[in-house]
């Protein structure tokens, strides 16, 4: 892990020294990571792609402000989570103004040749339930449960107190287990 951090910092230094190719390497190295966080928070492939691209465009402009006091991936978490939340908010705003169609299920074009149909169905069920949560609860749940971050790390990323995060996580767990329980009962 330490080697990976060192490699990130070297790439950043090279980019800041004018080596554009270093930025491309950085993108390729972290694109899956950013996509994964964005995919889980936005809940669909198209928005995740859009959000992930915005993250890297933003990085291009702001890499010079990365202080290296924390790991680059922690910084990426922050940008990816906030960018995904911004995208969700802008979607809601556009719908409110009638500039965008009402929420629709966007088809996923994920390639999953090696995953069973059952696993895929579980993922989709969880995604559907996650979409019904308030933005903060969903984000905290994803970062805590799926990414395994500590409350302090999430607090640093979202700028929210750990007490409030714990409340959000607790409510998210309750809502998800209730919703999934109902789905399983119906089946």
């Amino acid at each position: 892990m330490a080697a990976s951090h060192r490699e990130d910092n070297e790439l950043i230094d090279r980019f800041l020294d004018g080596d554009e190719q270093a930025f491309n390497v950085l993108v390729r190295k972290h694109q899956d990571f950013v996509y994964n966080v964005s995919r889980k928070i936005t809940g669909n492939h198209e928005d995740a792609i859009e959000s992930a691209q915005r993250v890297f465009v933003k990085l291009y402009d702001r890499l010079s402000s990365f202080g290296k006091s924390s790991a680059f991936t922690t910084w990426l978490y922050r940008v990816a989570a906030n960018e995904s939340l911004n995208l969700i908010r802008s979607r809601k705003l556009k719908r409110w103004f009638g500039l965008e169609d009402a929420e629709k299920e966007l088809p996923s074009s994920d390639d999953t040749p090696f995953e069973s149909m059952l696993e895929e169905e579980k993922k989709e069920q969880l995604d559907r339930v996650l979409k019904t949560l308030p933005d903060r609860q969903r984000t905290v749940f994803v970062l805590r449960m799926s990414e395994g971050l500590s409350y302090q790390e999430i607090s640093d990323i979202l700028g929210v107190s750990t007490g409030s995060l714990k409340a959000s996580f607790f409510h998210a767990v309750k809502k998800i287990t209730n919703a999934l329980g109902k789905i399983y009962e119906e089946q």
């Binding site: 899956d32 994964n36 995919r39 492939h45 995740a48 074009s109 969880l126 749940f141 799926s146 767990v173």
Partner: peptide, 13 residues
């Protein structure tokens, strides 16, 4: 109960 269901990671297609 939730942990296995949330342990997956998405990757770019």
């Amino acid at each position: 109960m939730l942990q296995p269901a949330t342990g997956y990671h998405y990757a770019l297609p």
